[in-house]
């Protein structure tokens, strides 16, 4: 490789699409919003809510840039709806929604889950967000990880909500038998390690 091409390669921005996946209310949108705030244009990707299935469509944010001494990475972040095996509209009623609103939300949520599953084929890498404070961990995480592995998509397991007293990132590590990054998307702890891991899985 010539000196010129080596210099060009070093300064070149790599581009990848990275999906944020996981169970409902694991903190995916909070994480997407933080990445947008720290590396993108600062615009939130979605609304964060204690009501499950607030995110019911895939939302992408292009040109989030993270870098280290090897160069920069131009990320397209895709925030996905929470993946689940059941949706009961009565759960939304417990959060104060009317029956009609709840059924409408449930219908949109079922479509959102399908979109999240179908988005797996469009990703170069994925962050699987696990709520580290909610053991036993949702079975859906194994389904998501298994499908990503089958597609040979690099995975980062983020043990979110590590700031909470009940959080047990070590249990996440033990359960999924994987390297994990303890983070708090809410207060920002662990984000530098997460960015380092994204650069690492992208081959930089």
């Amino acid at each position: 490789m010539s000196i010129l091409s080596r210099l060009f390669a070093r300064s070149r921005k790599a581009r990848i699409t990275i999906g944020i996946l996981g169970a409902p209310n694991a903190g995916k949108t909070t994480l997407a919003n933080r990445i947008s705030n720290e590396c993108g244009n600062g615009e939130p990707l979605g609304v964060v809510s204690p009501v499950p299935h607030e995110t019911r469509d895939c939302k992408a944010l292009e040109h989030c840039v993270i870098s280290d001494h090897n160069g920069s990475l131009d990320l397209t972040i895709v925030d996905t709806p929470g993946i689940t095996t059941s949706i009961d509209y009565r759960e939304f009623q417990q959060h104060g929604l009317s029956r009609q609103e709840s059924i409408q939300r449930a219908k949109e949520a079922t479509r959102g889950v399908i979109k999240a599953i179908q988005s797996l084929d469009k990703m170069d890498a994925a962050i699987v967000v696990v709520d580290a404070a909610r053991a036993p961990f949702d079975q859906i995480n194994w389904t998501v990880i298994g499908n990503l592995e089958a597609r040979k998509i690099p995975i980062i397991v983020a043990a979110n909500k590590s700031d909470l007293a009940d959080a047990d990132p070590e249990l996440v590590k033990e359960t999924f038998q994987s390297d994990i990054i303890p983070i708090s998307a809410k207060n920002g702890s662990g984000m530098n390690e997460l960015y380092g891991s994204i650069l690492s899985v992208s081959g930089m």
Binding site: T85, T110, V113, I117, W142, T143, N147
Partner: peptide, 29 residues
């Protein structure tokens, strides 16, 4: 079930949920 079958089952379940009788399932491996 393998992970791909589980994903297919989720998709089909979401299509068939009727918000009255059938609301989905729970799974354990």
């Amino acid at each position: 079930l393998n992970p791909e079958e589980e994903a297919a089952l989720i998709e089909e379940t979401m299509i068939q949920i009727d918000h009255q009788e059938f609301l989905g399932y729970k799974i354990l491996n």
